[in-house]
Design a protein around this nucleic acid. Sequence first.
DNA 1: CCACACCCTGAAGCTACTATAGAGTCAATG
DNA 2: CATTGACTCTATAGTAGCTTCAGGGTGTGG
Lengths: 143, 143
Amino acid sequence: MKIGELAHVAQCTVETVRYYEKEGLLPAATRTAGNFRQYGPAHVERLRFIRNCRALDMSHGEIRTLLSLADQPGAGCGAINAVFDQHIAHVDERIQELVQLKAQLSSLRKRCQAEQAVDACGILHGLAAMETEAKHKRHTHLG
Amino acid sequence: MKIGELAHVAQCTVETVRYYEKEGLLPAATRTAGNFRQYGPAHVERLRFIRNCRALDMSHGEIRTLLSLADQPGAGCGAINAVFDQHIAHVDERIQELVQLKAQLSSLRKRCQAEQAVDACGILHGLAAMETEAKHKRHTHLG
DNA sequence: CCACACCCTGAAGCTACTATAGAGTCAATG
DNA sequence: CATTGACTCTATAGTAGCTTCAGGGTGTGG
C-alpha cells in the first residue's frame, strides 16, 4: 500500500508517517519505480502500535524504548512494565498539578462575579497581588 | 534596576525577560549609556503579572488579551471574566482527558503483573490490539 | 493530451522557552 | 592604570511533535 492508505488505516496524516520515518520510529519503506513509499502489514502493525502509544500520551522516547524492548523476543517484560509504571506516574503527577491549578483559578474567579470597571476587577487585582513563585522543573513531558 | 535584578524579583531568568520583550508582552526598556536595559516599578508589576498568569498555565495569547484589557481603564471586566472562564474550562477539559487516560493505562497495566517473556506480555498485546482512534483536535494549549 | 489526485523533498512555523557563542560594560581590587 | 569577575548585549540554534508550505514529480481516467 502507499502512504496515504497507511495513514488512513492508522488514523494519522501522511506527514506524520514521513515524520516517524525520519525520526526512526517507523522503518523506512521500500520504494516503487516512481519513488513512492511502499508499505506492508508489518508497517501497519508498527504504526498502529505507535499511534496507540501516542493516544496514551507517551513520548517518542518512551515509545522508542517500548519498541526496542518488544523487538527482543527472548527478553522478559519487566522493563516494559517499568516504562509503563513511570508513565502512569507522569500522568498522575500532571493530574495533581492541574487539580491544584483549577482550585487556584476558581478561587481567583470568585473575586469578580459582576461586570464592573477593570480597575475594580478582583481577578486583575488577584493576578497582580499573587506571590510569584519560582517555576519548578517538570518531570513529565505532559504539558 | 538592571535585568538581573528584575528577573530575580519576578522569579524568572534573564533570558525569559528578554524573550518577553521580543514577544511584545513586556514593553521595551530604556537603555543606559552602555546599552543595558533599565527597568522601573511599572516593569516589575507587569512582569509579575505575566509570571503569575504563566504560573496558572495561561498561554501568551491569553495573557496578551488580559493585558490589553487591563490597559483600557474605562472598559468593563466582562471580557476578562470570559478569558478566565475559558481558561478554567481548558484546565477542566485536560483533567478529564488525563483521568480517562489514566484509567486506560491502569487497565492495560493490569494485564501484565509478572515478569514474563515479551511475547506473552499483556501490555504489548494490549497496545497492539487497541482500536486506534483519530486524534481529536485539542482545544487547549495544555499539553 | 490534460486534468486531477496523489506522492516527493526540504525548509519553515508552532509554543514558551533554554542554551550557547562571542563580545561589550562596569565596579572593585592590586 | 590594568586586570579580574560579575554582569550584560545580540544573534542563533535547540527542545517536542508535529503541521504547513513551496515547488516539483507520478499515475490514472477521459
